[in-house]
């Protein structure tokens, strides 16, 4: 049942993509959106970091954000789960809807938002606790105490993070004894344990060796059937390999947004072309 659902989802998505490319449009009206960003401006103090960004992210699939260092792509990502709230003296204009709700509304429950919009960081950051405790952390802080349910969630999440086979016999060993790539998959499993619908990934493979990177890329492709994935990456080949849509950021603006194939083979903007062909960045 679940499987056939997924299959149906994938097929319909492919159909959409095909239709989109035939019509030569970035996205078609049929898709329902997980995130809508409308005229976003973002400031650190008096310094503006993001300029008038409008973009919509579909319910499933991978969206990659590329661009040179300091172009605002990480800031943009952290706006989407309000992690920038932790930085003092920031200001935001515009509107961001996550599943139709304005997340910068004064009634927004930030805890609820961050449960729904999970985040994986550049450096794997497992807590200095056991593997089990890392994955159980999220459900625990949200009030789950039942040991059996926790065990189930930990197993399911570790399987979701493609780590279960490697760690099932040593769940109670320190998470920091894992390799860097395993730690990053553990961080993904830790996020999956709170059952988010959107995954934000901030250069998740930049601190990891190529083989581990490949595993995580495979995992991202598996997960994007069920989750909205928005990934910031420095690595253009990675964006080309794993994403369905790509946005090119430059100097705080989203210069171009479209299907990945179009961005890489037929960019509309000269700056995008210069960047993806390696002329700068």
């Amino acid at each position: 049942m679940a499987l056939s659902d997924k299959m149906a989802q994938v097929t319909s998505r492919n159909a959409e993509l095909a239709q989109g490319s035939i019509e030569g449009q970035a996205h078609t009206a049929v898709a329902s959106y997980a995130v809508n960003v409308e005229h976003l401006n973002f400031f650190y103090g008096s310094k503006q970091a993001l300029f008038d960004i409008s973009v919509d992210f579909e319910e499933t699939g991978v969206a990659a954000l590329i661009g040179p260092s300091g172009c605002g792509k990480t800031t943009f990502l952290r706006v989407l789960n309000r992690m920038n709230d932790l930085v003092s003296n920031t200001r935001l204009e515009g509107r961001i809807l996550v599943h139709g709700e304005d997340i910068y509304d004064s009634f927004t429950d930030v805890v609820e938002l961050r449960k729904r919009v999970g985040m994986v960081f550049q450096q794997p950051n497992p807590f200095p606790k056991s593997i089990y405790e890392n994955v159980a952390y999220g459900p625990r802080i949200h009030g789950l105490k039942n040991r059996r349910q926790l065990d189930e969630i930990v197993e399911r999440s570790l399987k979701g993070g493609a780590l279960w086979e490697e760690v099932k016999d040593r769940l109670h060993e320190p998470a920091l004894s894992l390799s860097g790539g395993q730690q990053q998959r553990l961080c993904i499993a830790r996020v999956l344990a709170v059952q988010p619908r959107i995954l934000l990934m901030d250069e998740p493979t930049s601190a990891i060796d190529p083989i581990a990177t490949q595993r995580i890329e495979d995992l991202i492709r598996e997960l994007c059937v069920d989750y909205t994935i928005i990934i910031v990456t420095h690595n253009m080949q990675q964006a080309a390999r794993i994403s369905d849509h790509t946005g090119f950021f430059f100097q705080g603006r989203m210069i171009e947004w479209g299907e990945t194939a179009q961005i890489f083979t037929n960019p509309r903007d000269q700056r995008t072309e210069d960047y993806v062909t390696g002329r700068f960045g």
Binding site: N81, L86, K115, M119, N125
Partner: peptide, 27 residues
């Protein structure tokens, strides 16, 4: 206590006190 631990916990929807209590203080 590394900032990364705090961010990891916040990103999972922990409240500030939960972050302090379960991640920062033990460390």
């Amino acid at each position: 206590v590394p900032r990364a631990y705090r961010e990891g916990a916040f990103a999972l929807g922990a409240t500030r006190w939960q972050v302090v209590r379960s991640v920062v203080l033990p460390r």
